[in-house]
Design a binder for these strands. Structure first.
Length: 367
DNA sequence: ATGTCC
């Protein structure tokens, strides 16, 4: 059964019938099209309902910024680091014990804040948050290259089967909600760039920088705990605003597609697809899907098994001391990532470069 | 998503 999407020339939905999209998300798309200044919306195959609008879309507006499209987790995104190790030489139990200590937050090094474009004010007020994963769908994951799909691209980057990688999904922690609250806006009306929108964007950009630094600190800590040298490779936000001063491009759970390769993770029990986006794909607003997308909301997962010890096709170890969170984030709460990426390929938005397999997933060390 | 309900 296919969804019926709003008949609106401004809307493109990059999903086939195979990627089931909840009716509530489609209705939210309709509301998004009614917001002031919206000139185009690109919906991705991982689209699902969110708090103030659908997650998994890019929204282009003319002269107006809508802080509640981006929401609280300003700057959230994915960072991929390369590690100088091979999975066949990895001692899994030792790696699990090492990554369990990601929950400790003692002795964080703030020396890199200034170089990363984070002000001393923010760095000092949010020092305790720096290098912390957070909750929800955030994670740090040790991965290995499982399969090469695009051999020339992998040869070009030196990516080989069995290599180890770190994928970090996190955001601006408490800074994002603080920025959102500091810029009151009417739902649907947003803020014109010349009446408060520009001021929001200054604070927003600081949160984006803080989120990026937070991911880098997390990756650096994880590499150090594993005793492996790590090299930053990719950093791709999927919850933010970019603007040329007139057109305002919001991404809400949609990865930026003009920064090079993008890691598109499935659930904690599924592969991550490393893809090469086409930044000029017509109608896609320089964006692609940011993950598998939820197919079941968090509340509906309670009362089910947390699946922490259930074997999954990937066989990764999961560190998650919080049973409630483990249930919410169970693999069956998410769509099929292979299907989502197939939809991206069908529509010419991206090509798969390699499949990355989770080895150890860190969610949270505390309940 | 959130030093998430003190």
């Amino acid at each position: 059964m296919t969804n019926s999407y709003p008949a609106d020339a401004r809307l493109r939905v990059f999903a086939t019938a195979a990627s089931w999209i909840e009716g509530a998300a489609v209705r939210q798309l309709e509301q998004t099209l009614q917001r002031r200044g919206v000139v185009a919306v690109a919906a991705m195959p991982d689209l699902h309902p969110g708090h103030k609008g659908p997650v998994g879309c890019a929204v282009l507006a003319d002269g107006v910024v809508h802080p509640d499209i981006v929401g609280t987790d300003i700057g959230c995104g994915m960072t991929l680091w390369r590690l100088d190790g091979l999975v066949r030489r990895l001692r899994i139990d030792k790696a699990v014990r090492a990554l369990e200590r990601l929950g400790d937050t003692d002795g964080l090094d703030l020396s890199e804040a200034a170089a990363a474009g984070v002000s001393a004010d923010i760095a000092s007020r949010h020092a305790d948050a720096l290098g912390t994963v957070g909750g929800g769908n955030h994670f740090v994951e040790l991965q290995t290259v499982e399969r090469i799909i695009d051999a020339p691209s992998c040869a070009e980057t030196g990516l080989e089967v069995g290599a180890l990688l770190l994928l970090v999904h996190s955001g601006s922690r408490a800074l994002g909600p603080e920025v959102l609250a500091r810029h009151p806006h009417a739902h649907g009306e947003g803020l014109r760039l010349d009446e408060g929108g520009a001021a929001y964007l200054v604070d927003h950009d600081a949160a984006v920088a803080f989120a990026r630094l937070n991911r880098a600190v997390l990756a650096k800590r994880a590499a150090a705990l594993l005793g492996l040298d790590g090299t930053p490779w990719l950093d791709v936000p999927h919850n933010h605003v970019t603007t040329d001063g007139v057109e305002v491009l919001h991404r809400k759970g949609a990865a930026q597609a003009d920064l090079g390769l993008v890691p598109v993770p499935g659930s904690r029990g599924a592969m991550t697809y490393l893809v090469r986006p086409d930044p000029d794909a017509p109608g896609a607003l320089r964006s692609i899907a940011h993950g598998a997308g939820r197919k079941r909301d968090r509340a509906s997962m309670q009362g089910k098994s947390d699946q922490r010890d259930r074997p999954n096709p990937v066989g990764n170890r999961v560190i998650c001391a919080d049973a409630k969170l483990a249930r919410e984030e169970a693999p069956e709460a998410y769509k099929n990532i292979a299907r989502v990426v197939a939809d991206l390929e069908t529509h010419g938005l991206a090509r798969t470069v390699a499949l990355l397999k989770p080895v150890v997933t860190f969610k949270t060390g505390r309940a």
